[in-house]
Simulated scan of single mutants.
Amino acid sequence: MNEFQFEPKIRVKLPSLISEILKQDSINFAMNANKLCNTIFAYYAINHTLLEDVSVEGCNNQTLQFTLNNDNQDLFMALCDTINISTKALFFRNLFFQYCNQPIYVREQIIYNSSYQMLLNAIKARRKLKIRYKNSYRIIEPYFIIKSDGETRNYVFAYCDSQQRYCNYRLSNIHAVGIITKVPFEHYDEEYIKTMHRNFDAFLSYGQTIQVRLDEIGQQMFQRNLTHRPKLLNHQNDIFELECSQLKAQLYFPQFMHHAEILSPPELRTWFHDQFTAVYTMYTKDAG
């Protein structure tokens, strides 16, 4: 038995690109580096058939250090009896390379694999699922998991019993607690679910429209600013009809300032009026 099997401290040199991806994932998934690395190892230790010998090229100018937790020490010891690990550093180097070589939405599925697998099982069985979301427990009917257009996030489309409406949840924001095996779906609408899948929008914009007037600069901004940009349905002169929920509009259009004027719906126009009035008041309260 090799002596490295008893040492929980891991020290491995990685190409700078791999190190930067791990640092960014630590931020994206709100985990410190030690927890992130332990989570990645636990996934591949359990799914070790996914591991392959790879040639990792690049400058080894970044050193990664972390400590295996107690459970992962046991996993590593068991893994040493299952696969050939010549050197610990090379093993973890290859492991992190394979993880970082995945698109971010796949890495998210790896980090939150316990919830991800439970969601898949609930969807397949058409059974309700108890989740923890923002420090409260909810019961949902999960219908499908889909990645965002930019392939950066996983979203769960579901009916929420406590909200009494259809919702999108980000995979990283929920923790699956358990499948309620005795309670089947009660709000399953196959045609509606298929429609929402075909027209997926993280902000549930399908079927909702707004009208906005864009001046010349606003139209240039609309062409250029792609993040959360609403779908264009029609436009005549400077008036644009967009498929857009009110939440999406509230996130997207403040950056346009006076180059965009919300025309409808009235409640959205009122929201923008109140927000910009508050901004005006803040900047003029000490004037004169």
Rank of each mutant, 00 (worst) to 15 (best):
residue 1 M to S: 13
residue 5 Q to Y: 11
residue 6 F to S: 02
residue 6 F to D: 05
residue 7 E to P: 03
residue 15 P to V: 04
residue 15 P to Y: 01
residue 16 S to T: 06
residue 17 L to M: 03
residue 21 I to A: 10
residue 25 D to W: 05
residue 26 S to D: 01
residue 27 I to T: 11
residue 29 F to E: 03
residue 30 A to Y: 04
residue 31 M to D: 06
residue 31 M to V: 01
residue 33 A to S: 04
residue 34 N to D: 15
residue 36 L to D: 04
residue 40 I to F: 10
residue 41 F to C: 01
residue 42 A to G: 06
residue 44 Y to Q: 12
residue 47 N to S: 13
residue 51 L to N: 09
residue 52 E to S: 15
residue 56 V to S: 08
residue 66 F to L: 10
residue 67 T to V: 15
residue 74 D to T: 10
residue 75 L to G: 02
residue 77 M to S: 02
residue 80 C to T: 08
residue 84 N to R: 11
residue 86 S to C: 13
residue 87 T to E: 13
residue 93 R to C: 07
residue 94 N to G: 12
residue 98 Q to W: 09
residue 99 Y to M: 03
residue 100 C to D: 02
residue 100 C to S: 03
residue 101 N to S: 15
residue 103 P to S: 05
residue 105 Y to I: 00
residue 105 Y to Q: 04
residue 110 I to P: 00
residue 111 I to M: 09
residue 114 S to D: 14
residue 115 S to P: 06
residue 115 S to I: 00
residue 115 S to N: 08
residue 116 Y to I: 08
residue 117 Q to S: 05
residue 120 L to I: 12
residue 122 A to T: 00
residue 122 A to P: 00
residue 122 A to E: 03
residue 124 K to Y: 09
residue 124 K to E: 15
residue 128 K to I: 08
residue 131 I to G: 07
residue 133 Y to W: 00
residue 134 K to I: 08
residue 142 P to S: 11
residue 145 I to F: 04
residue 148 S to N: 02
residue 157 F to I: 00
residue 159 Y to N: 06
residue 159 Y to P: 02
residue 162 S to P: 01
residue 164 Q to N: 15
residue 165 R to D: 12
residue 167 C to Y: 07
residue 167 C to T: 08
residue 168 N to L: 08
residue 169 Y to N: 06
residue 171 L to T: 00
residue 172 S to T: 07
residue 172 S to N: 10
residue 176 A to D: 03
residue 176 A to E: 01
residue 177 V to E: 13
residue 185 F to I: 11
residue 186 E to S: 09
residue 186 E to A: 12
residue 186 E to C: 08
residue 192 Y to M: 15
residue 195 T to Y: 07
residue 201 D to S: 13
residue 201 D to R: 04
residue 202 A to F: 05
residue 208 Q to R: 15
residue 211 Q to T: 10
residue 217 I to N: 10
residue 223 Q to E: 14
residue 230 P to I: 08
residue 231 K to D: 00
residue 236 Q to N: 07
residue 237 N to F: 12
residue 239 I to G: 02
residue 240 F to Y: 15
residue 243 E to A: 10
residue 244 C to Y: 04
residue 248 K to D: 02
residue 251 L to N: 14
residue 253 F to V: 02
residue 256 F to L: 13
residue 256 F to V: 12
residue 258 H to S: 11
residue 259 H to Q: 14
residue 259 H to E: 14
residue 267 E to W: 02
residue 269 R to S: 13
residue 285 K to W: 00
residue 286 D to P: 09
residue 287 A to E: 09
